[in-house]
Design a protein around this nucleic acid. Structure first.
Lengths: 129, 129, 129, 129
DNA sequence: GTGGTCTAGACCACA
DNA sequence: GTGGTCTAGACCACG
């Protein structure tokens, strides 16, 4: 696990983003057990309370299910995960597009910029698909 | 002026975003005088101190120049403003693309989503150009 | 902590000068925790908001790192601190020399004056090393 | 006249510094007439009120004498000017030395830095003597 | 009137 | 307890 945190938003939310990404891109599969709170805390170098909050948040969203004495598991319900993926996408896309439009960028400029950014990401070696 | 604030980030930063948008999309021109701190405070419905912080932040970025006893002015240097626009764009685009890739979206999916979002924005009546 | 403020510049900047001096002369070491905002406020006899501003300024300069809920720490990067020391020195020296030259002092006069001032400082008991 | 102003201190004080320098380095001689307030205001690109304040300040110090209907003149008293020069020097030197010592610089470092700065100033073409 | 600083006091999220 | 934001209200120097 390699996560880095910035000051733009709370660590517990950044950690949540991280797990959601792992789930959405298939690194963590439905039904899979998440590392324990303590384990994650050590690996991420943050306070266990913070991790606890992340897990609680994910459980509230229905993405994660805590089983007494066994640990926390990603939901086995594929539909929920699929919806999570769609919700995240729509949210990000909308925010991004509105921002760009407000800053006076035309449709063509926006599309071009995205293309360029995708290409650059490829060059940096980030994988998707 | 119609600005609304949410809880996602500090008011003074949202206000900065607002002014930067006005500058980037040409609503506010290079060299133009900004409304006074107090004036903006009244219009935005926030405390003058908060506006002051926004103005200070913009001055630190070199976008705004404060002249004692005269007011605050957008820099006359078009190059700086052009760079602001580019920086904002690159920042938003990169963040967005990286997020999407990390969540496992393919290039095609990303482009398609952006197209859809642009179309929806048009329908909501947001203009760009 | 013994800090006194004059009217030559804002308190929050004088407080910054004070901390930078402590860091440059080794009184405060890299990685060390600074007193909390409130604590410093009490000791310096100023409002917490003013101290907050000082800390924010130092963080923007990269000299201080604020960790949520834990406190503010001097950067562990010795190179940054070394550069701070050099920057401060160069800035002061250059300003001073330019002023003196503009006022028509010769190199010899300047050097002599500095020597005298150093001697006087010693007599007043100010230490350096 | 080429004066530039920064935001570090009031314009009227920076303008005063400028005139004092001209007087101390012999560009403006004892008894010489200063340009009128309006004239200076135009050349320096500042408000006449600001220049007025500068002149008033210099008159208060005894360096400048205003003669009704004739204008403002530098004092003919060489002793006053000599003292002005000494006062300025001592003030700058002392402030500078104290700052450097507080930042942990040794006598040798300080002297060396001054030598370097003098050399650099020469290279930039600033004249003294 | 303008920007800028400061205080007092409150509130919040985070660890 | 820690950093950070915000309000309310005041004051100041500058132009």
């Amino acid at each position: 696990m390699k996560v880095t945190f910035d000051n733009s938003k709370p660590i517990y939310l950044q950690l949540m983003d991280y797990f959601y990404q792992q789930i959405c891109n298939g690194t963590i599969n439905p039904g899979q057990k998440l590392p324990s709170v303590r384990e994650t805390a050590v690996e991420a170098g943050v306070n266990p309370n913070t991790v606890q909050r992340t897990y609680a948040e994910m459980e509230r969203s229905g993405i994660v299910v805590a089983k007494r004495g066994q640990g926390s598991f990603v939901t086995e319900d594929g539909a929920i995960i699929k919806q999570l993926r769609e919700t995240i996408a729509e949210q990000y896309v909308t925010t991004f597009v509105v921002y760009m439009i407000n800053n006076g960028f035309s449709d063509e400029e926006i599309m071009a910029q995205v293309q360029i950014a995708l290409k650059k990401a490829k060059e940096r070696g980030e994988e998707n698909g």
